[in-house]
């Protein structure tokens, strides 16, 4: 099974470093995830244990771990993943939940605005994802039951279409 860790276009050193820590890699392996792919964006991490080939850092002593910074689209990586661990950006959340993938989000506490935290908790309350913290990540993975997630509704364009059509005087 594959895990995909993503921080989008942001920089989130703590999450990337935590995802590459022994604590997290061990619990992932114990849960049966043999491959970890990390999209680290602009984050800093310790690449000593890695072998660099092109834009990708790889290590194989802890299951297979692959780290890279950016790709034009993450769609394919979401598709391949059996679990996604992400910063709590709303775009990533929507993309991943619509693909019906189990999702753990970690709001970046160092950001001034806490609305990421609000979104993460609200969606966790509805059962669509698990919200965690950098330090609590191993425990969240340990207790994760992918079958417990409530499926997220697919995009419903009719709501906005009806509102605007009505406002602009188009017959329904």
């Amino acid at each position: 099974m594959h895990v995909f860790v993503t921080v989008g276009s942001t920089r989130f050193d703590n999450l990337v470093q935590r995802a590459l820590s022994d604590a997290v890699l061990d619990v992932l392996r114990a849960k049966g995830y043999s491959k970890v792919v990390v999209q680290c964006g602009n984050s800093e991490f310790d690449s000593k244990a890695f072998k660099q080939s092109g834009d990708t850092w790889v290590r194989r002593d802890h299951g297979e771990v692959e780290v890279w910074r950016f790709k034009p689209s993450l769609q394919e990586d979401y598709e391949q993943a059996d679990l996604v661990i992400s910063h709590a950006g709303s775009g990533t959340i929507l993309d991943v939940l619509r693909m019906r993938k189990p999702l753990i989000v970690i709001p970046n506490e160092t950001l001034l605005d806490n609305h990421q935290q609000e979104l993460a908790s609200a969606l966790e309350d509805l059962g669509h994802l698990r919200a965690s913290t950098v330090s609590g990540l191993p425990e969240t993975i340990q207790t994760l039951e992918p079958s417990d997630f409530v499926p997220f509704p697919q995009f419903n364009g009719s709501r906005f279409r009806e509102m605007l059509d009505e406002e602009m005087g188009f017959a329904p």
């Binding site: 709303s90 609305h115 990421q116 979104l119 609200a122 605007l164 406002e167």
Partner: peptide, 13 residues
Amino acid sequence: KIIYVESFARVRS
């Protein structure tokens, strides 16, 4: 006419 749609990311504020 001006239509404003607040972001999906805005839950409580």
